[in-house]
Design a binder for these strands. Structure first.
Lengths: 164, 164
DNA sequence: GTTATTGCAAACCATTTGCAAGTGT
DNA sequence: ACACTTGCAAATGGTTTGCAATAAC
């Protein structure tokens, strides 16, 4: 997940967000800052509930209401800072869409792990297919299902499963 | 959508379903038959609500409760007769997974239309990538976003939009 | 000072579930 | 007869929303 090289970005996520908000006549509030900071403090896939949990009293002193988290996540998506990558446990799963290279995911049926992989070749091929169909492609989402290397190992039980 | 060639199948959907149910010690009830018949009476993408609506008193005489439709759709998925292809309007969208060739979808951002396209090349490429990563691939889901040919046409308003 | 935003609690909505009555084998 | 199913209505659970108080510009 974190082994992918980051793409150098001139503007920080928070500034990019401020820019977007400005174009919409919206404000960069304290709460929104806290959420952006939280989301971009690690390059992990996340869902809304995780943010809410981290931004809860006992945990970091900072605190943002569930409603605001939902509202802000929506804005971050519109701003192009994050994007939906999958659905897990009935929840939408997001990832960074700013400052990281485009990629797709392997999703392990056994342990649910998302494994990112570079997708230039796939993207190129898809683009060709789209042109053949006169479809003006703007993006794609590819999820490959199966069993990850670790879960494929026979014998001893999979350590990842023990985390459950 | 319906321009794709059908794959000749020896067993009808209803029989395939009966088979599956048998392996699970379950019964092919009248309600389940009605639902399968409805689902396979046309090769269109659908969501649960559409089935419920079609299987409502005034419409065809047949009538199945919403709960049973949900339950049966789940079974049809397990039986490999249908599969989830996307989410639309907060609802899961399904399509036939039996009797039709594998394909992926273009999804128009403007009119929400799903356009199927053959995906042999894509599937092959993905399989290669999976092997390189030691991922034992079992399947994939590819959605390509953009603007469909019809919605790309300039000038006059898009007729599909008028349906809203 | 305006106008956008927050937090709360209530509302929404798709989906699931407990249960008593009904049905397939 | 027995176990599986149905339909109903209530429950669930993620997400949205109305509104009064509060904060950004």
């Amino acid at each position: 997940m974190s082994e992918l090289p980051t793409v150098p970005v001139a503007v920080s996520p928070i500034d990019k967000f401020r820019e977007y908000l400005a174009t919409q006549g919206m404000r960069l509030t304290h709460e929104r800052s806290v959420i952006v900071e939280d989301v971009f403090s690690q390059h992990e896939h996340f869902d809304t509930d995780q943010i809410v949990e981290r931004l809860t009293p006992g945990n970091t002193g900072r605190r943002v209401s569930r409603a605001s988290v939902y509202r802000t996540v929506g804005l971050l998506e519109e701003a192009g800072l994050i994007r939906k990558v999958a659905r897990n446990n009935e929840r939408d799963v997001y990832e960074h869409d700013y400052g990281y290279p485009r990629h797709d995911h392997f999703i392990c049926d056994r342990c649910d792990t998302l494994i990112e992989f570079e997708n230039d070749r796939v993207a190129k091929l898809i683009e060709e297919l789209a042109q053949e169909t006169n479809f003006r492609m703007t993006g794609h989402r590819l999820e490959v299902y199966g069993i990850c290397e670790e879960c494929s190992r026979p014998r001893k039980r999979n350590p990842k499963l023990d985390l459950l």
